[in-house]
Amino acid sequence: MSVVTIERKVLEKNEAFAEQNRRLFAGRGLFVINMVSSPGAGKTSLLEKTIERLKGKVRIAVIEGDVQTDLDARRVEQYGVPVVQIVTNGGCHLEARLVQDALQSIALDGVDLLVIENVGNLVCPANYDLGEAMKVVVASTTEGDDKPLKYPGMFRNASVLVINKIDLLPYVDCRIDELRGNALKINPRLEVFTLSCRTGEGLEEWCGWLHGRTKER
């Protein structure tokens, strides 16, 4: 019986592509966030509101990831920003290679902030580095306050938590302090924003922070 030593990371190929993306982003002075959440938490709504509020201050481009359709890209396109849709055809997450290919068909000249909206899924996208500066996880009050404990991987790998749909708090069994506390038990370094894309409450703090981070580049 003979043993061949390998000792290599399973996802090293993805990590190599992510590193290439990261160098490309750095070369262009681009701030890149990877938005992740379960389906329906409000990633696209948050993106729309963010583009609206930062208009004239931050030039934004968007990569949309979905299992099927270009509905999200068409939604975002109406705001006059460069956008490209990646359709994964069943794939449950974006990979760095797919992002690299998508970069070929998007005009990045003059862009300050690139938002990659991942496939709605709280499990798989946690494992795949796309070359972003940080992951922003969106959780909504309708999902309940125990989400971070049930899906720790995503909350551990994110740098920012946006709690959306706070306008619905009177109608759902979600305690916002419990949700925040559970997330911080998984990742004490998380920066937390609470907001409602529908009413606009809290959007100013989030957009102000994002504006500041983008200009630091």
Partner: peptide
């Protein structure tokens, strides 16, 4: 809460064993 993860995130191929 001031902690660092030291194990449990690995996803690695260690080796393979060939058939005689």
């Amino acid at each position: 809460p001031r902690t660092r993860v030291t194990s449990g995130m690995e996803l690695q191929v260690l080796d393979l064993e060939l058939l005689e």
